[in-house]
Amino acid sequence: MKNIIRMLITLSFVGVVSGGGLALLSSWADPLIAANKKADTERAIFLVQTEADDYELVTDVPFELYRVFDETKNPVGYALPWEGNGFQGAIRIMVGLSQDLNTIKSIEIIDQTETPGLGTKILEDPFRGQFEGLNADPHVKWVKGAPATADNEVETITGATISAVAIVNIVNDGIETLRAAIAEGAGQ
């Protein structure tokens, strides 16, 4: 019986100390972590909307969306974080869109788990750069094995077709969802 009490006390004690200590630490770390995260998002927004100066979170859509303003507080477009399936796992990208949603300003890949050195070429400019100023009306198309001809086409990556196609799909999916939401009067 004595042993049981000892067990109870020991484990509870360790738990209490650990819980307390971590709570103290987290009260220090939490704001910093939140700041880091915010900085990440901010960085991505400014990367995809180069003339942007300020942004705000759009609250009346059921997904994350930022409206972006230039120095004169004029709205210049949207920054849309969107997620979809890549070759290995989820890919999360930030898409910069013009005000009319028909032109992609740029994209930035926030998170991905593609094959290093192959699928990860989606991060590099030969591919990513194609999205700068890309026409998204009605949607983005991809071509394989030949340079893009139309202004809404991107060329896929040799050997990583799936990853490249995945990006195109994510972009299209995000834009479509956003269009639908805005058509219903959201985000104004």
């Binding site: 738990g15 650990s18 971590l22 709570a23 987290s26």
Partner: peptide, 12 residues
């Protein structure tokens, strides 16, 4: 809101 305790509680 004590998600930071997940490691310790899970492992326990």
């Amino acid at each position: 809101e004590v998600e930071y305790l997940q490691y310790v509680s899970f492992i326990l």
